[in-house]
Simulated scan of single mutants.
Amino acid sequence: MSARQRLRDLGIELPGVVRPAGAYLPAVRTGSLVYTAGQVPIVDGKVAATGKVGGDVSVEEAADLARICALNALAAVHDLVGIDAVTRVVKVTGFVASAPGFGGQPKVVDGASAFLGEVFGDDGRHARSAVGVAELPLNVPVEVEIIVEVNGEVAG
């Protein structure tokens, strides 16, 4: 089953690509890899939540926000090469704006990882880093970037 069909089965539509907040591209392809810029939880052009995880934002809410970030990353990939060109998710890096003493970053980034597994099955299993940071752009609680492997065909 294609990734596009899995998304349909999950009742999820790929959003438009989130407009970059600076002088960079949402995604870049080199060879068989596509790297996305860090994606934040923007829904319909608006920040979905702000604050620090372990303070203003619960782990569960932050995991849902990480899922939105991963969806936005897939939108950037789709815009560049087409979602069905993805043959495997290689790496996920998640940044979590953390309240002092918070150490649950892996549980937050699990939201992105689980979502990618839902979309790509075993090909969605990946290497990962989950990093706690003091601040993120727009005061969002989480940011996610992905690296995916794609086949040679490019489709929009």
Rank of each mutant, 00 (worst) to 15 (best):
Q5W: 12
G38H: 13
D56F: 14
K52P: 02
I42P: 13
A23F: 13
T36S: 05
V17R: 00
G54N: 00
I12Y: 03
L7R: 06
G54T: 08
V59S: 06
G55A: 14
S58T: 12
G55F: 03
T50Q: 05
A27H: 04
T30C: 14
Q5E: 12
V43F: 00
A21R: 15
A23M: 11
L10I: 08
G45R: 11
Q5S: 14
G31D: 01
V53M: 09
A49D: 09
R19Q: 13
R6T: 15
R19L: 15
A27E: 10
A37K: 08
P41A: 12
V17S: 00
G22F: 10
P41W: 08
S58E: 07
Q39S: 13
R29K: 06
A27K: 00
E60I: 09
V18T: 06
T50G: 13
P20C: 00
G31P: 03
S32Q: 00
T36C: 02
G31E: 02
L33S: 04
T50I: 12
G51N: 05
G51I: 01
D9I: 13
V40L: 15
K46R: 13
G55D: 14
V34N: 01
G22I: 08
E13N: 08
P20A: 01
L7P: 03
K52I: 07
G45Q: 09
L10E: 03
P20H: 08
E60H: 04
P15V: 07
V57S: 00
V47D: 03
G45Y: 14
E13M: 06
Q39P: 08
I12N: 07
A37L: 04
I42C: 11
G31H: 03
G31Q: 09
G22Q: 10
I42F: 05
G38T: 15
Y35M: 12
G16Q: 04
A21L: 14
A49W: 01
G22C: 05
P15W: 01
R4L: 12
V53F: 11
Q39K: 09
Y24E: 05
G16D: 12
G45A: 06
L7S: 07
P41Y: 08
L25Y: 10
P41R: 11
L7E: 05
P41G: 02
G38R: 14
R29T: 01
L10Q: 13
S32G: 10
R4A: 15
L25P: 02
G31W: 09
G22T: 15
T50D: 06
G54V: 02
G51V: 04
D9P: 02
A49T: 02
G51T: 00
L7H: 01
V40C: 09
V59E: 13
S32E: 05
I42Q: 11
Y24W: 05
Y24I: 05
D9Y: 11
K46F: 12
P41D: 03
G22L: 02
V40I: 13
E60L: 11
L10D: 07
R6Q: 14
G45K: 10
K52G: 05
P15E: 00
L25C: 01
E13C: 08
Y35L: 11
D44Y: 11
R8Y: 01
V53W: 07
A49C: 08
V57L: 06
V59N: 10
K52W: 15
R4S: 14
L33N: 00
A49M: 11
D56R: 14
V40N: 15
L14A: 01
L33R: 12
P15Q: 02
G55Q: 09
L14E: 00
V57C: 05
A48R: 15
D56V: 13
V34Q: 01
